[in-house]
Computed example of a mutant assay.
Amino acid sequence: MIQKIFSYLIPIKIFKKKSARSKVIEVTWANGELVLDSENTNYSYGSLQRILRYGLRNIGYETILKMEHILLLGVAGGSVIKTLVDEVEYKGKITGVEIDPDMIQIANQYFNLDQIKQLEIIIDDAFEFVLKTKDKYDLIIIDVFEDIKMPNFLFESFFANRVFSLLKNKGVVLFNTMILDEAHNVRNRKYISEINSKLFSSKMLPRVEVHNELIIIEKVA
């Protein structure tokens, strides 16, 4: 495809849409791959896929392969789902929760998300879903952004404790956060400090991208 070849020289935008939730959504050929971007940041594939792949590798592909059910809060274009299915070769159930129906429509059209049989997509607010779900999960991936902003509720202890309560024994949370200033550094450290160290182990991974910091929390009891 000529657009793919030329994208190694210059990004080629092939789709742009205004969304009520995400303002602007763009699909672009960049360095030979399709990526999904919001107005100011990469939403799926590209750098975001590298970040979450790094987190999954840290958890361990062998560990993930033994899991039965993975929950993804914040689907966007579904790059982490593609990593799980195509690279990890994960065969268990994946539930993806995405607030923006426009995003899922684009993910299906350009990234074939609707062809993944083990995937269930639920259009809902992550906060609301976490309160309602009766399931337990082996891995919960939190990747919720509104452009470059992260909703405050993600860092509140009420939400964090509810997420942790949905983990099976030895279950893991992979939390992708964005650091744009010192206040965000303080926020992340406060979040870590409030985790019950008797029940959970937690660590922050060295950054692979300048503004993203991954937090991994594992249920040990």
Results as ranks from 00 to 15, higher is better:
residue 118 Q to P: 01
residue 111 F to P: 06
residue 203 K to S: 07
residue 3 Q to V: 14
residue 64 I to L: 10
residue 42 N to P: 10
residue 36 L to S: 07
residue 152 N to R: 14
residue 213 E to V: 02
residue 191 Y to Q: 08
residue 77 G to A: 07
residue 125 D to F: 03
residue 119 L to P: 02
residue 162 R to T: 13
residue 98 E to F: 03
residue 3 Q to L: 13
residue 1 M to L: 15
residue 7 S to A: 09
residue 3 Q to R: 15
residue 24 V to C: 08
residue 175 F to K: 03
residue 203 K to H: 05
residue 186 V to D: 13
residue 216 I to K: 00
residue 183 A to G: 04
residue 15 F to R: 07
residue 175 F to H: 02
residue 109 Q to K: 14
residue 192 I to R: 13
residue 45 Y to V: 08
residue 164 F to A: 06
residue 94 I to C: 04
residue 79 S to P: 04
residue 159 F to H: 01
residue 1 M to Y: 12
residue 66 K to D: 07
residue 11 P to S: 09
residue 115 Q to W: 06
residue 107 A to K: 01
residue 70 I to Q: 04
residue 153 F to Q: 05
residue 51 I to N: 12
residue 197 S to A: 07
residue 61 Y to N: 10
residue 22 S to R: 04
residue 15 F to W: 05
residue 133 T to V: 01
residue 214 L to I: 08
residue 172 V to S: 01
residue 147 D to Q: 04
residue 160 A to W: 06
residue 181 D to K: 13
residue 6 F to K: 15
residue 146 E to N: 12
residue 7 S to L: 04
residue 47 S to P: 10
residue 178 M to A: 14
residue 45 Y to R: 10
residue 34 L to P: 02
residue 3 Q to S: 13
residue 34 L to H: 06
residue 155 F to M: 10
residue 81 I to E: 03
residue 119 L to I: 02
residue 208 V to S: 05
residue 37 D to S: 14
residue 87 E to S: 11
residue 20 A to T: 12
residue 61 Y to M: 11
residue 105 Q to P: 08
residue 107 A to L: 01
residue 178 M to P: 09
residue 28 T to A: 08
residue 141 I to F: 08
residue 55 G to W: 01
residue 98 E to Q: 01
residue 6 F to P: 04
residue 9 L to F: 13
